[in-house]
Design a protein around this nucleic acid. Structure first.
Length: 163
DNA sequence: GCCAACGTTGGC
DNA sequence: GCCAACGTTGGC
């Protein structure tokens, strides 16, 4: 069973529509060890991702993406001209890791953070926990499915299951 | 723009 | 290894 994830992006920086336009992207710029470790150790090709828009009103899940390349060095850490440059990164020890993702489908209806917060079904989901800032989070299967439903998608169809 | 929560840095 | 200072995240 592939794992389920949630990845945050500010739509002004890189929205789900940008991912759809590009067809695929490097998830560069992650500079948090917990998030890095998940990309390095746990994310696998085929894993599905809830694409979450943060720092927008309202914050919401916008679409579904899929991991299409597993963890490898984030070259922006080595690039002095990059906003994500890290002087402590070296080619021998690149320090930061990224994965590639590709779009699967946009939600028919975006699922707002508030709707997730107000639904007891999502109790315990990291996204709604106080102080949770991680830009990459694991998502339980039942939470994942419920988000897709609320987003107006056919879950069985999307996951390739018999109805 | 505010600020709570949290992570990182670096002096000691 | 402690912890104060500082930076970032991200909802509101």
């Amino acid at each position: 069973m592939p794992a389920r994830w949630l990845m945050k992006s500010e739509p002004d920086v890189y929205a789900f529509a940008d991912l759809v336009r590009d067809g695929r992207t490097h998830w560069d710029g992650v500079r948090n060890y917990q998030a890095r470790n998940m990309m390095r150790d746990a994310m696998a090709i085929g894993d599905l991702v809830l694409y979450y828009h943060s720092n927008t009103n309202p914050p919401h899940v916008a679409g579904v993406a899929r991991v299409c390349k597993e963890g490898y060095p984030d070259h922006t850490a080595l690039d002095p001209s990059s906003h994500y440059h890290d002087p402590k990164a070296t080619p021998e020890n690149p320090r930061w890791i990224m994965v590639d993702i590709e779009p699967v489908v946009e939600l028919v209806q975006p699922v707002a953070l508030n709707d997730i917060k107000n639904d007891p079904y999502f109790e315990g989901m990291p996204l709604v926990q106080r102080g949770q800032r991680l830009s990459i989070q694991t998502v339980d299967e039942h939470h994942f499915r419920r988000i897709l439903e609320l987003g107006g998608l056919d879950v069985h169809d999307l996951l390739g299951e018999d109805a």
